[in-house]
Amino acid sequence: MSIEGKLATMGITLPDAPAPAANYVPYVKVGDLVFVSGQISNDENGLITGKLGNDMDVEAGAAAARRCAINLLAQVKAACDGDLDRLVRVVKLTGFVNSTPDFTDQPKVVNGASDFLVEALGDAGRHSRSAVSAAALPLGVAVEIEGIFQIR
Rank of each mutant, 00 (worst) to 15 (best):
L121S: 03
A79K: 06
V28Q: 12
V36M: 07
T9L: 15
V90S: 03
D85P: 00
L93M: 09
V36T: 00
K77E: 09
L73C: 04
C80I: 05
D85S: 04
L121E: 00
V88M: 08
D32G: 13
D115K: 12
A8W: 07
G31L: 13
L72V: 04
N54F: 05
V88P: 04
G82K: 01
D16R: 13
N111A: 10
A120T: 03
V34N: 06
G31I: 08
L117P: 02
S128R: 05
L47C: 03
F96T: 00
M10T: 14
E119Q: 11
I48Q: 10
D16K: 12
Q39Y: 07
L14F: 13
L52N: 05
A65Y: 09
R129I: 05
G53W: 05
N23E: 15
D83Q: 05
V132C: 01
S41E: 00
S37P: 01
D81M: 01
S128P: 03
H127E: 04
D105G: 07
M10C: 14
L14S: 13
L72M: 10
G82M: 10
A21V: 06
N54T: 03
V30W: 06
V110R: 03
G31N: 15
A62G: 10
F96L: 08
I12Y: 08
F103C: 08
V110H: 02
A124C: 02
G122P: 07
N54K: 14
G112R: 02
S37C: 06
G125C: 02
H127V: 09
